[in-house]
Nucleic acid binder design. Structure first.
Lengths: 351, 351
DNA sequence: CTGAAAGCGCTAACAC
DNA sequence: GTGTTAGCGCTTTCAG
C-alpha cells in the first residue's frame, strides 16, 4: 500500500485562508459563516473537487446508529421469515460498526397490533426505521408520527403513495402481473382461458393484488384470451371453485397473486392430477419449491423479500452513517424461477 | 443517536493489565509478546468477545489501497463493456475511501497481449487484482507470478481450476446450459431437433462453451430430442449452415453459447423470416435487446458481467481494507430474461 | 518484550 | 463569526 495524498479539510482551509472549523461549517451548512468566508471556501471546494473521507467522518462524529425494522411476525408466514433472514444477514454484516439493529414484529392478521407497535417504535428512539407497511390505513398514521418526530424511514415490499420515505424498495407489481401473463401463454397451445386467483386475501383491501391482476389483464389485452378473476377466502371455496373451473377444457393456466396461495392451489391441482394446467405464482417458500420441483408449479416470480429487507437496512445505514444519497426508489427486477434455475438462486449468496 | 459504549482496545488492555501496544500485537500476531501477556490478553479477548472497530482500524492504519482490474478491451466486445461499467460503478462507490482502482485491458483476440500486461500489472504493485482469465494457458503463468509476489487476486467470469484465488465469481455454466434446454423445450410442440451453435469461437479452445453445451445435452438426455452442435467461425459459414438447418421441419430451436453469437444468429433468422424457431442466447447486449423486444430472440440468459465485475472489486476492497472474509466462490444465479421482465432488469439499480 | 505517544481526517465544544 | 483543540479507536513508531 502506498501513502495517501488525498486532499484534506486542513488543506482546503489553508488554501481558502480560513480555519478547519470554518470549512467544517460550510461543509455542513451549520451557519455562522460570513458571506466572504463562505465564498472563499466554496470556491476552493469546487476547484479541488474535495471529497470528505467518510471513514474519518464516521469515526470523528462518534455516534452509534439505532435502526429498527418493523415487519409482520416471521412465525406467521414464510414470506416474512425470508424478510427476517435478510435483516439478520445485515445485522451480521454491520456487526463491526457502531450500529444497533432491532426488529419489531406485528400480527399479520391484526391491523390493531400494528398500531400497538407504534409506541414501542417511538420510545426506542431510532435514528431510522425500515417498515413493511402492509396495513395501509394504520401505516399512514405511523408515518405521520414518524414525521412529527422527524425519524426518517425506508419503506419496503408495499408502497404508500402518500408517504415520503428516504427510499421505497420493492417490485413493480403491474409489471410482475404482465410477466405472469407472458409465462402463462408461453409456447402457445390452443387453450384460451386464464384464471387469476386471490387466495385468503380480499382484492379490495390489497392494492398490491389489484396491481398484479391489472398487469395480467393488460398483458392479455388485445389478445384472444379470457381472464377470470376470483377471490377465494376459505379452503372450501378454493377447492370448490378450482374443481369447477377445470371442467372448462379451455383452461390454460392459473395465476395466483400471493406466495402462500400458490402452494395451496398446487396442492389441489396435484390432488386432482391436473398437472397439465399451467400454474404461475410467487416466491421461494419451501412449499412452493416442492411443487416447482415436481412440476405442479411451472413458474415462480421471486419478489426477493430477503434481499429487499437486507438492502433496506443497508440503505438506511449507508445514508445515516455515511451520508450516502439514496435513490428515491429501488425497484427490484422481476426474477423468473423455473425448475432448472431454482438451485442457482437458492445457492447464490448474493441474493 | 446515543453514545457508544463498545469495548475498546484500551479497555481490554486495562482488564489484562497490559498496554494497548501489547494488545495490538496479540491481535495481529506481530510477535514480540511474552507467553504470559499473550495468555492474559487472549483470555480477556475471549471473555469479552471483543470486535475491533473497523472504521478506526482503517483510519488508523492510514493506507491507500491499490486495486487493478485486468480484463479484455471493452471496445472490442459489448460483453466486456458491461463488465467495465461494473468496475466504473464501484470506482464511484469507493471514491470516498482511500482506494485507487485501475483498469488494464488486453486484446480479446490476442493471447500474446495478455502476457504483455503481466509486467504492467506487476510494476504497478497493486494490493490486489481482479482478473478475467479468458486465456487459460497465459493466465496460469500470470497467476504464478502473482503468487510469487504474493499479490492476492479474485477471478471472475472464467474459472481456472488450478488457481488459488481469494474468490471466484461466476455462473455455473453447466447449469446455464440446462436452463437453456428447459427454455428451448418449454411449452412442448412436436418438433424435436435442437441446434447448439458456437459462433466465432472454437469449442476446443473454450472450456466454458463446452460446459454450456454439456449442460444442454444433459438436459435432453433421456428425452426424445436430437441435439446437433456446430462450430461456425465465419459469417458465411453461419449463414450457410443456418439456411441449411432450417430445411429440417423438425427444428425446434437454436441455442447460441456466446453473447455476440446470439444477435448474429438473430439477424439471420430475421432475414429469412424464421421467427417460429425458438432462439436462446446470452446477455443483455444492445443488439440482443433489440431482437428480444422484436421476439426474434425468445430468451436471454443473463450472465451479469456488470455485477460480476462490480462485486469482484467490492470483495477485494472489503477483504483488503476491512479484512472481511470472502466466500471461496460467489456463484451467480442464472437469470432468465424475457420480453416482459427485461425492463425491470434494465431499470434496476441493484443489478 | 513493553509502554508511551503521535497521528489518521474529521467533528464539535469552547473560547475569543 | 472564527480559530483552536480535544477527542473518536486504532496503528505504528520509538525509546527503554
Amino acid at each position: 500500500m502506498i501513502d495517501k495524498k488525498n486532499i484534506r479539510i486542513k488543506d482546503i482551509a489553508q488554501m481558502a485562508g480560513v480555519s478547519v472549523g470554518t470549512v467544517d461549517r460550510v461543509l455542513h451548512g451549520r451557519g455562522k459563516v460570513s458571506k466572504d468566508a463562505q465564498q472563499k471556501v466554496e470556491d476552493v471546494l469546487n476547484r479541488t473537487g474535495y471529497k470528505p473521507n467518510l471513514i474519518a467522518r464516521t469515526l470523528g462524529s462518534n455516534k452509534t446508529l439505532k435502526i429498527t425494522a418493523l415487519l409482520p411476525d416471521p412465525a406467521q408466514d414464510d414470506y416474512w421469515a425470508l424478510a427476517e433472514a435478510g435483516i439478520l444477514q445485515s445485522i451480521e454484516e454491520w456487526s463491526y460498526y457502531d450500529v444497533e439493529i432491532n426488529c419489531i414484529f406485528f400480527d399479520l392478521y391484526n391491523p390493531g397490533s400494528f398500531k400497538t407497535t407504534t409506541d414501542v417504535v417511538l420510545e426506542s428512539k431510532p435514528d431510522g426505521i425500515l417498515i413493511a407497511p402492509v396495513f395501509h390505513h394504520e401505516s399512514i398514521e405511523l408515518l405521520a408520527q414518524l414525521k412529527a418526530h422527524s425519524i426518517p424511514y425506508v419503506l419496503f415490499n408495499t408502497n404508500i403513495p402518500e408517504a415520503d420515505p428516504l427510499c421505497f424498495i420493492g417490485q413493480n407489481l403491474v409489471h410482475s402481473g404482465k410477466v405472469a401473463g407472458e409465462l402463462l401463454s408461453l409456447g402457445g397451445g390452443t387453450r384460451r382461458t386464464i384464471m387469476s386467483l386471490h387466495i385468503y386475501e380480499n382484492r379490495d383491501n390489497s392494492v398490491h393484488l389489484m396491481a398484479k391482476e391489472h398487469g395480467l389483464r393488460q398483458y392479455f389485452q388485445e389478445q384472444p384470451y379470457e381472464v377470470i378473476s376470483l377471490d377465494l377466502s376459505t379452503p372450501h371455496e378454493v377447492e370448490d371453485h378450482i374443481r369447477e373451473a377445470i371442467l372448462n377444457p379451455d383452461l390454460l393456466g392459473i395465476f395466483v397473486t400471493t406466495s402462500k396461495g400458490t402452494y395451496i392451489v398446487a396442492q389441489i391441482l396435484e390432488k386432482y392430477s391436473l398437472e397439465h394446467i399451467r400454474l404461475v405464482g410467487y416466491d421461494l417458500l419451501e412449499e412452493n419449491l416442492r411443487y416447482l420441483k415436481k412440476g405442479t408449479i411451472d413458474f415462480l416470480i421471486n419478489q426477493n423479500p430477503k434481499r429487499m429487507a437486507k438492502i433496506g437496512v443497508n440503505h438506511l445505514v449507508n445514508h445515516l452513517l455515511f451520508q450516502k444519497t439514496l435513490p428515491e426508489k429501488e425497484i427490484f427486477p422481476i426474477e423468473i424461477i423455473t425448475r432448472q434455475n431454482l438451485d442457482s438462486y437458492l445457492t447464490s449468496r448474493i441474493h
